[in-house]
């Protein structure tokens, strides 16, 4: 596994140029261009603000502006969902490259998260503007956010590689990916918080099985001052299961990599 990561680093020029290609092409021939990176999370937020206005119990459980809870959740979830989908589809999208020239195939998977990463950064700027609007303090804790993003990236690359590797031969997987994203949104604390679940006996399994729960919560911890998040042990569990997913992803990918071309 170390070897395949090293191969990717050795070809970083290619990694960056593929990332640049995806970013350049992303908003070509659109009128609003990069503004779409702002519009999508903001629109999602408004939809849920509207929905939860009708359920006062939910919107009043916290001492933080509910808009910020929503937006931070959507920000992290969108990054995970987009990068996960990009990674799982990357092999098929770039099949013309895979079948014509050799380079470490992992580069394709790694470079495909670039667009989502850019969207996330833009979303983060929007988040800070919202904080200022709600007169909510931004603390130095936010400097840890990049570390959290790295962990999320590992998780989404890992999960993307698992599904992406199998999708080459079994195209059924392509039908599963949107379902994972759609249902995942509701089983992760994107538009709710985990306050009420912390003491439940099953909470630990929830964390292990769905690392994105811990990752969203820890993101809120660094983004929102005084947010009551998961404890250190729970965080370590999240970290372990995210990295485990990454390792499994790379291992499966390495094993199946050699036969990709034969099924494209």
């Amino acid at each position: 596994m170390i070897k395949s990561i090293k191969e990717v680093i050795a070809e970083k020029d290619l990694l960056f140029i593929l990332a640049k290609r995806d970013i350049t092409v992303r908003y070509k021939q659109t009128v609003l261009g990069i503004l779409w990176a702002v519009i999508r999370p903001v629109a999602t937020m408004f939809v849920f603000i509207f929905a939860f206005k009708q359920i006062p119990a939910l919107s009043s459980t916290n001492k933080y502006p509910f808009q910020l809870i929503l937006f931070s959740g959507i920000l992290v979830w969108n990054y995970f969902a987009n990068s996960f989908q990009a990674v799982s589809n990357s092999l098929l999208v770039n099949s013309n490259l895979i079948s014509k020239v050799y380079f470490p195939r992992l580069i394709i998977a790694f470079s495909s998260i670039a667009v989502s990463l850019l969207d996330l950064l833009i979303g983060l700027v929007v988040y800070m503007i919202l904080c200022i609007y709600f007169q909510y303090p931004i603390t130095f804790n936010i400097l840890y956010f990049p570390l959290v993003i790295i962990v999320i990236s590992f998780f989404s690359i890992g999960l993307g590689l698992i599904l992406g590797s199998f999708s080459i031969k079994y195209r059924d997987i392509l039908q599963i990916i949107p379902i994972v994203v759609q249902y995942g949104f509701f089983v992760s604390p994107v538009v709710f918080t985990i306050d009420s679940m912390l003491n439940k006996s099953w909470f630990i399994y929830y964390l292990i099985l769905n690392p994105i729960v811990g990752l969203i919560e820890i993101s809120r911890y660094v983004l929102l001052e005084g947010y009551k998040s998961i404890n250190l042990l729970q965080f370590l569990i999240t970290l372990t299961s995210a990295f485990l997913c990454f390792i499994i992803g790379i291992t499966i990918f390495n094993k199946r990599e050699n036969s990709f071309v034969d099924h494209l």
């Binding site: 593929l18 290609r21 092409v25 490259l97 020239v101």
Partner: peptide, 19 residues
């Protein structure tokens, strides 16, 4: 190999060269 239709000739030289 790997030319992207939306990119310019200049950008594609770098892209294709790297590939």
């Amino acid at each position: 190999t790997g030319f992207h239709p939306e990119l310019s000739g200049r950008e594609n030289i770098f892209l294709n060269g790297a590939i």
